[in-house]
């Protein structure tokens, strides 16, 4: 029951409240009235489709990057970290002790056109003068990947760490080479970690707006930026609420399909 109460107070009530707001019409000065304006959902989706599509694109690429980078990282810590495992994990988490926004601002400073990295490379003529990273899609995607890497690496680490080493040894005893041990034993056993990591990374990555606003340029606006703009600058509460619901709905559908395809499979199916 405490769980149910928790859900009611912190999830269901706000959700119903937002749902109600998203179907109102009006403005801050004349007030908002409940008009059941369902068509708003179609309007906001049409109006901001490019930003929706872009958010999912950026989120997907960034998640893929964190997986590619995070897996070897987690694997190495879990299998070769030795007695320093905790130290390595702490190092992985260390950036989290600095505020998300500050970290992103630091990236902005480091990657500046004439900054310490690009400026040096340009003065050695390793890069053309006009080259820049900031204000590009690459910058935003990399920023998201950088900021959410621990969300991917930690669940991966937990699932890899939990693998019974005797199973790995047994595979070796049965003449599996290193590649087979990894592909047919270790990787399948780490699938729950991959599943959790992708969920934990993808969902906040799609809704992120900090990276786009600090590292982005003229055509990198994500749906999170639009929601923030509509809520805090334009005071279009219904539009912002509807956008949030569309985003949530699409994410939920995606996750549901993803879970059906990947999460519900048992380990045996991979072996």
């Amino acid at each position: 029951m405490p769980g149910g109460l928790w859900l009611l107070v912190f999830f269901l009530i706000p959700i119903f409240f937002m749902l109600s707001v998203s179907l109102q019409t009006g403005n801050l000065e004349q007030g908002f009235a409940q008009t059941w304006h369902f068509h708003r959902y179609v309007e906001v989706f049409q109006q901001y489709r490019p930003q929706f599509v872009r958010s999912f694109e950026f989120g997907t690429i960034a998640t893929a990057i964190t997986l590619v980078v995070g897996y070897p990282l987690a694997y190495w810590i879990a299998f070769h970290g030795g007695r320093h495992k905790t130290t390595f994990l702490f190092l992985l988490l260390l950036p989290f002790f600095v505020s998300f926004v500050i970290r992103t601002l630091a990236c902005q400073f480091i990657l500046a056109d004439d900054g310490i990295v690009l400026g040096a490379l340009k003065s050695w003529h390793l890069l053309p003068q006009g080259f820049h990273i900031l204000a590009t899609r690459t910058a935003v995607i990399s920023g998201i990947a950088y900021n959410f890497l621990p969300f991917m690496a930690l669940p991966l680490y937990v699932s890899l760490e939990r693998i019974d080493r005797r199973v790995v040894e047994a595979a070796g005893d049965l003449y599996a080479n290193k590649k087979d041990v990894f592909l047919r034993v270790i990787f399948p056993l780490s699938i729950p970690g991959v599943f959790a990591g992708i969920l934990l990374t993808f969902v906040p990555a799609v809704g992120d707006y900090v990276n786009a606003s600090i590292l982005g340029g003229t055509s990198t606006t994500m749906i999170g930026n639009i929601i923030q703009l509509e809520f805090l600058q334009n005071f279009h509460y219904p539009v912002a609420a509807a956008l949030s619901f569309v985003l949530m709905g699409v994410l939920l559908i995606g996750i549901f399909i993803y879970a059906r395809v990947l999460g519900a499979r048992s380990i045996e199916e991979y072996v």
Binding site: F16, L19, Q24, G31
Partner: peptide, 15 residues
């Protein structure tokens, strides 16, 4: 109650 949220929401204007 759900009704309070779903049927009766609105913010009074002030201008």
């Amino acid at each position: 109650s759900l009704a309070a949220f779903l049927s009766a929401c609105g913010v009074k204007g002030t201008s």
